[in-house]
Structure formats: C-alpha cells, structure tokens
C-alpha cells in the first residue's frame, strides 16, 4: 500500500516537472497563460482583491502569481497538499509575513481599493480590519476576560469598563463560548480545553470587529466535536464577516465554504464555487486531489 502511494507520488512529480519545463520554453506571457488559474477568480461582491501575488522566502518561490477575490459575506476555503503555499498566501492577506525576515511579497492585494503592501499602508489598523485565527490555539497567558479585552484595549475601542464588559460578553456569545465560561472569566485562558481555546481565539479576533477573518487550519488541533462547533461558528460568522479559511480537510471545506480555491506547489490551480469544485473539477490536478489520488 505504502509502496503504491509512493510510486504514484513520484509519477505525479514527474508530471509537474514536465509541466514546469514546458513553461520554461515559452515566453513570459505564455507562461502566465499556462499557469493561469482555472475558474472564476472574481467574486460577485469583492471585499479583498488579490492580483499577481508572488511570495519569496529567500531563494524559495513560495507563491507564484496568484490572483483571487475574497467575496463579501462568503467563506473562501483554500485547500491543497502540504507545502502548497495556502497558509503563506493567507498570511499575506494581513501582512503577518512581515514578522518573517526574508519574506518578500510582490503583486497587489487591496482592501477598500487600497493596496495593503503600499508604503503608506499601516499594518496596525490593517490587522484590526483583517483579523486572524491561527492553526494552534494561542490564548495569551492571561485571564479569559483579558484575552478578549486585549484587542479593544490596545485599539482604544471602548470608553469604560461597562462597555468593555459588554463587548467581551458579546464576543464570547458570538463565538458560542459564553455559556461555558461566563462564570470563570477571571481564570486563565490557557486552562480551557483545546476547542474552547480556539473559540476563545476566534472571540478575541471578533472583539476588534474586523471585516475580514483569516483562519489558518483552525480545527487541525481539535477533536471532532470541537471541530463541529467551530465549523458551526464559522457558518454563523459569515453573515457579518468575510472569511478565508485554510484547511486540510476537504469535508470541512465542503461544509463551511461557498467558494473553494485549490493550491498546488505555490500555484493557484482552480477557483470556483465549492459545489462545482467538489462535484466537477475542471483541472486534472484538482480532480486528482479531490478524489484522493494524492494529498
């Protein structure tokens, strides 16, 4: 079994190499055509627009010429095999890659018609506008209350204690955590279970009332029950927010998203409505992945 999988994998890699070397022979414009994403990259009501995004880590070309829109009030799922660059791409959307020294981003990503990689763009308000939830739940080693209150406090969103209490409660309610923690807000956030911690992190993110929420495999460290709760939450949040989620689980993508983007080795291979991607993928690589021939 193992052997077969490996053989297939090798086979596939040869394919890609052939594919790449093809591009080597063609001119630059043609190569762009060859790599061009299958499907409709544009959303009906776009909130963020990415065009020709390239990311380099030192010498490594991690994201190759990716263009896609994030539609308003919709969940965009990004899927693909490990190391395909989907997380890297997600982290570009609120410039979290800035914290990595040799990371270099080109192309345009805009929100409200403003390029977020423009020199005049300030990352602090950007991240308040585009929030992020991480793969591993990362509550601060503070109380549950202080975890939620952290964002509003630093941004000066509330005037007094009462307003803050209200905001904390509201955020926890939206994250579906209120019932479980309302009686122990003063206890450390690190004492919660994994699923609760992740919902705490989501609550922490929405306490700043961002417009876009980026989620980087938010359920990969959670058990199935906790996963179900978070998925439910994502679905509810869609009403008010624009969400991009990176996931390893195709079922999850199918359950929570309206649109799906399939990444492969730094290329965005195909974008389309989730229904279409899962039912009739247009690109061979997407089909191979969906049908589980590799991944």
């Amino acid at each position: 079994m193992d052997n077969v999988a490996t053989a297939e994998h090798t086979d596939f890699e040869e394919n890609t190499i052939a594919h790449t070397s093809d591009m080597g022979h063609s001119t630059a414009t043609v190569s762009r055509d060859v790599r061009k994403t299958v499907g409709d990259i544009e959303a009906e009501n776009p909130r963020m627009i990415c065009r020709g995004v390239n990311v380099h880590y030192g010498d490594k070309h991690a994201i190759k010429d990716v263009s896609v829109d994030l539609g308003k009030n919709e969940v965009l799922a990004m899927i693909g095999p490990s190391g395909c660059g989907k997380s890297t791409f997600l982290r570009c959307l609120n410039r979290m890659n800035d914290t990595i020294d040799d990371c270099h981003v080109t192309g345009s990503i805009s929100i409200d018609e403003q390029d977020i990689y423009d020199k005049s763009m300030d990352v602090v308000p950007l991240r308040a506008q585009v929030g992020m939830v991480f793969q591993k739940p990362n509550p601060f080693p503070k109380s549950i209350y202080d975890n939620i209150a952290y964002g509003p406090r630093i941004h000066g969103l509330v005037e007094d204690k009462e307003e803050l209490d209200h905001l904390v409660e509201g955020s926890l309610r939206k994250a579906g955590l209120w019932a479980e923690v309302s009686d122990r807000l003063a206890q450390p956030g690190t004492g919660l279970s994994g699923g609760q911690q992740q919902r705490l992190c989501i609550a922490r993110t929405i306490a700043v009332s961002p417009e876009v929420i980026l989620m980087d495999e938010p359920c990969s460290a959670l058990d199935p029950i906790a996963t179900a709760k978070v998925e439910e939450l994502i679905d509810e949040l869609r009403e008010n927010y624009t969400i991009a989620i990176v996931t390893h689980s195709m079922q999850q993508a199918a359950r929570v998203s309206q649109r799906t983007a399939y990444f492969h080795l730094g290329d965005l291979i195909e974008v389309g409505s989730t229904e279409q991607i899962f039912n009739m993928p247009r690109h061979q690589l997407t089909e191979d992945y969906i049908t589980g021939r590799f991944g």
């Binding site: 308000p125 308040a128 941004h155 000066g156």
Partner: peptide
C-alpha cells in the same frame, strides 16, 4: 466606526 477609532488612536 471601529476603523475610525483605531485610526484616531494610532
């Protein structure tokens, strides 16, 4: 409003 507050405090 949120964005305005955030920007005002920057």
């Amino acid at each position: 409003n949120t964005m305005e507050i955030v920007k005002a405090n920057l």
